[in-house]
Each structure stands twice: as C-alpha cells, then as structure tokens.
Write a protein that binds this DNA or RNA. Structure first.
Length: 557
RNA sequence: UGGGGGAUCGUCCAACGGUAGGACAACGGACUCUGACUCCGUGAAUCUAGGUUCGAAUCCUAGUCCCCCAGCCA
C-alpha cells in the first residue's frame, strides 16, 4: 500500500466507522470497492477507491475488490483486467480479497427460491411494457400484476424453467412481492432475476438468468461480511430494498449502506455511459486517450497516482452534490511534479537565432541544474553553439510595455548560457519573422551577470545543431464549457482544440534518454514520453502546463 | 401535487450550542538565471423568515431553491 504523508481528512463516513468501532458494533472494518466491468475506471471511481481502501487501511481493516458482474450483456474481460490494473496503479492492494458477484450465483439463486418458498417472490409473465404501465407514476400507485398471486409450486416450476433456458429473453421475470403502492418506486415489486441469454465473462453459458443489482449487491456484501457498504447518493432510494432482502433472507451478516456524493469536475464528464460513447464514436482515440478522465487516460498523460490521491484527499467527502474546479486537480499535479520532475529545455515553436559574434563551429558544454527543488538530482551539461532556437512567443517585434522578453535592441538571458541582445530581424517574403540576428556578451558565460546589470527575462533555448526534433501533444480540456451537456447536446460541447500536435519541437539532447516519468520543460509545463514514441521519433504528452502569469496579463489586455 | 436527499467564501471541504477555518481560484507585494516555485498580505460565505438561548451555521417552526427515483442498467 502506498501511504501519503498527508493526514487523510475526516469526514462523516469515517466518523461513523469510528463510532461503530468505539461502540464495539464491529471488531474490524470491512469495506469493498464494487465496480461493474462495463467500462474503464475514471477519476470519480478514484474517489470511491480511496475512500474504501483508505478507510480500511486507516482503521486496520480490509477492503475487497468485488466485480459487480451481474449483467453479461454489458460486461467484458477487457474491463475486468483494466480495472484490476488501475486499482493497483492507484496504489491499493486487495490481497486475497478479489471477488465477483458471479462467485455467489449459486447462493443468490438459492435465496431466490427461498423467497419464492416464503411467498415473497413470484414469476411475472407481463411484458416489460406492461410492467412499466402497471408500475404507476411518481404520484400514483402501481397496480398488482395479474400473476402476483401464483401458487408457490407454480412459481418454483416457472423459475426453474427460466433457469433451464426454456424461455427467451424478456419472457418472464422473477419479482419480489413487496408493495405496488409504495411511495418508493424501488419497492413496487422490483425485478430480481431476468432472462439473459448471453455469455458471461466468468461463468460462460452456465446461466441464462441473472440477478439484478438489487438482488445481488447486498447479499454479496453479507456473504463477504462487509461492515460498511459505501456507495453514491443515487442508491439511497435502494437502501430500503437492500435492507428488505437482508431481513428476508438467511444471510450470514448484516452490512449497512452509507451514501456520499459522487464527484463532478468542471470541463469534465464522469459518466461511464458518455465515456463509452466517446470511445465508440471516435471522439477520442480510446479509453487511454490522455484527454479522457479515465485512470488510464490521466496515467498516459503523466499524472502520478500520488497526485490523484492527493486530489481525492483535498476534495473531501460529503452528502451535498458539488462540482470541483478542475484547477484543483491541476494544482495537485503541479505541486507534486514541481518537487519530483527533472528540468529540461525544449522549444515548442522554434524561432532561429544566430549569434553573430559567437565563433562559427564552436561548441560549449554548459552546466544546468536538473531540479532546483531537489539538489540531489544534480546537474547535466547542455551544448551551446552559434545557432540556436528560442520560443517564437519569446520574441515580439513591437512589444507592449510589460513584455519582458526578446525584442529589437533588447537584452535577455539564455538560461545557463549567455546574455544576448537582438540586433536584427530577418523576414521572409510574407513578412514573417524567420530568424533573429543577435550578439552575445562573452563575459556573461553561464548566465551570470558580469557587471551586475539586470535583464528582465531568462529564455530557454536549444542548440540548432544538437537539438532533436520530436512531436509534442498539447492537451486542452475535452469540453468548451465547464458543465458539458448542460445545454442539451454534449457532443456540441466537445472542444475542437482539445489536442494540438506540435511537429517541430526541438529538445535538448539529454531529453532523448528520459524514462516514462514526467519531466518539466522549463517555462512550459510538465511532459512525459508517450508510448507512441519510436526509436527515431519521440512523442511527448503535456501533462499540465506551468502557471502562466504572463498569459493572464495578456488576456487581461 | 409521491418517496428520498441537500443548501457555509467564486469552487470544494471544516466548524458537532461558545472567535465561521483550510485548500483551490482571484487580487496585491517580496524573491527569482523558469513571468515557475517559495514567502507575505488582501478581498471573499452560513438559502429566507420567525422562534428557543446569555450565546445559533449548529436546536425548533414555516418557507424557498437544487439533486435523485417511474431499467428485465449499476
């Protein structure tokens, strides 16, 4: 288990757990993270994972990983594998406690027969439409099914024939006999077993009837002796049902359900259904597209698991619906990477600079600090020569007052190298600046001020002859509005500029050998090598940009 | 107009009858060989109306607004 230094925040669920332990209602806390393997895990799941595994760790209990695999029509092995990988990546370990609702299908089936025997469940022959029509509305009670009072023997026979595969999908369903007039619609004789002729990733074709979520979840919790079954708010209405099954079945333990508000983030969609659609329709390149809020996506973007854990700790846990500013997430990523990432120089949009008074053919190796936040990271050497590249944004022909960087006649520092002064601008036929002619001050070697004179800016740069070109993928928010879909059409809110591919990026030679861990491109942001990199062409993803005060000044006019 | 929840700085979370606090964001300043980082400072909130109390974000009453539920999804 990875442990963060930060003290986990207190919240109402931890208070409940503590109180239960203090009152000796439990000797040990047992939680579970119960994903359905019908998609990849996202940041919202991370909140649940950190909560469940975190509580177990803090109170000396354990947390199970249990797949809620009761609907073979939507579930796949690929998702099961990805989920296990992602939970581990986040830093949690379920040890021996890997379970599946499908492990309990025999027991759950037996409990269904038990309910039938007790006269508390019946087979309904109504069509889905008929059932819906008879369910009533939010303000009107439902009507009893004409099959509601079937004899136990008939129900048993029919249910067994459902199991034997005698009927097609949707022909019949097993329902709990509760109360068609209940204000809580979940209690209006909910379906608990349905016919689904589909291969299950784990049980294959052994079954053609499957329990619903309501008839599987609480019982699975009970079988595993879960003490605190933590879920999101939308399941609150299901709690009476959850408890009804626990009370009407000979279960081995009585877990309790607690609900918290699911996570929402600005400019982000955390709905598995939507994310699946984006993948399916090609709006992103896959579940691990770095623009996706999936764990696979942000991992590929370079976000460390520890930063995600930090984020989850900072946002807290409560029962009020809320939407966290994505800036909070970015801040967590920057804070961690600032401490750990090695610094390099990379020019994203190159502009050639020729230093006229620097000897042609001369090359100097200059010392550069790898990480000012971590002296142990040491130094490296960066080659300097007569022709270099600087960032196009670092030059303006007619600069406004607050522009500190290079401009005609202005002197700036090249980081770790020399002071240079812009003497001349070279333009092409279209009037585009193609090159700057500068002079340098040999006395400023290493970037030191020879006579105490100040420059307003320090620029990053790369030697033209030593630099290596590569691709950089700059990711921007996937959506153009903070509340995607709020205007009705979520696809219309997709940001057409969510991915910017830079093809002429020039990086310092040392960057060729970096590993997969994120690095800082000085004055730009944090980047990490993408798996699409080849021996001949490196590809970097921007994890997150640095805070950019100048951009703010510009935007403000 | 059924049932179940929820309202505290711009945002997220605390305060559990006793000075409304932290984080992110914003703004100002210091520092700086990253317009980064760091540091210092500023502004910023208890949904409304009554009531109880020496004292209310917290307890009571009545409202208002928001979210969830009518799958054989989870």
């Amino acid at each position: 288990m990875t442990v963060d230094a930060a003290e986990p925040g207190r919240d109402f669920i931890r208070d409940i757990v503590q109180a239960d332990l203090d009152a000796k209602r439990h000797t040990a806390v047992v939680t579970r993270f119960p994903p359905e393997p019908n998609g990849y895990l996202h940041i919202g799941h991370a909140k649940s994972i950190c909560l469940n595994f975190g509580i177990a760790a803090e109170f000396g209990g354990r947390c199970h990983l249990r797949f809620d695999d009761t609907n073979p029509a939507k579930e796949e092995q690929e998702y099961i594998d990805a989920i296990e990988h992602d939970v581990r990546w986040l830093g949690f370990d379920w040890g021996e406690h890997l379970y599946h609702a499908s492990d309990y299908f025999d027991q759950i089936y037996a409990w269904a027969e038990h309910l039938i025997q007790a006269g508390k469940a019946y087979v309904d022959d109504q069509t889905p439409d008929e059932m819906r029509a008879a369910r009533g509305t939010l303000t009107e009670p439902g009507r009893n099914s004409p099959f509601r009072d079937r004899a136990v023997a008939e129900n048993l026979d029919l249910f067994r024939r459902m199991k034997a595969g005698e009927f097609p999908n949707g022909a019949r369903v097993l329902r709990a006999k509760i109360d068609m007039a209940a204000g809580n619609i979940n209690l209006r004789d909910p379906a608990i077993y349905r016919i689904v002729h589909a291969a299950h990733p784990r049980t294959g074709t052994s079954w053609c009837i499957y329990p619903t979520y309501d008839f599987a979840h609480g019982q699975s919790d009970a079988i595993e002796h879960i003490t605190h079954s933590i879920c999101t708010l939308e399941f609150e209405d299901h709690k009476p049902l959850y408890e009804w099954f626990l009370e009407n079945l000979p279960v081995p333990s009585k877990p309790r359900q607690y609900e918290f508000a699911r996570l929402n983030i600005t400019y982000t969609v955390l709905s598995k259904r939507m994310l699946t659609q984006f993948v399916r329709d090609g709006h992103v390149t896959g579940w691990d597209d770095p623009r996706m809020p999936t764990l696979a996506g942000i991992r590929r973007r370079g976000v460390p698991a520890a930063a995600l854990r930090d984020f989850v700790g900072r946002i807290g846990v409560a029962r009020a619906n809320s939407t966290v500013d994505v800036a909070m997430f970015d801040a967590c990523v920057r804070e961690l990477l600032n401490k750990t990432a090695s610094r390099y120089m990379a020019v994203l949009r190159p502009l050639k600079v020729v230093i006229e008074n620097y000897p042609d053919g001369q090359v100097e190796q200059l010392d550069a600090v790898n990480n000012p936040e971590d002296p142990a990271a040491g130094t490296r050497q960066v080659p300097f020569a007569r022709e270099i590249y600087v960032e196009r944004d670092d030059f303006m022909e007619n600069p406004p007052k607050k522009f500190y960087r290079l401009a005609p006649g202005k002197e700036v520092r090249l980081r770790y190298a020399y002071f240079i002064t812009c003497r001349e601008i070279v333009k092409d036929a279209n009037g585009e600046v193609t090159e700057l002619r500068c002079t340098y001050d040999p006395a400023s070697r290493g970037g030191n001020s020879p006579d105490g004179r100040k420059v307003q800016a320090t620029l990053h740069w790369v030697s033209a002859s030593h630099g290596v070109t590569c691709d950089v993928r700059v990711y921007n928010p996937l959506f153009t509005r903070p509340d995607p879909g709020a205007a009705g059409d979520i696809i219309a809110d997709l940001n057409p500029n969510s991915l910017e591919v830079l093809k002429d990026v020039v990086i310092e030679p040392a960057l060729v050998n970096v590993g997969p861990e994120p690095v800082q491109f000085e004055r730009q942001g944090y980047f990490c090598r993408d798996a699409d990199s080849t021996d001949t062409r490196l590809v970097f993803n921007r994890t997150v940009g640095l805070r950019d005060t100048w951009a703010k000044v510009q935007a403000g006019g």
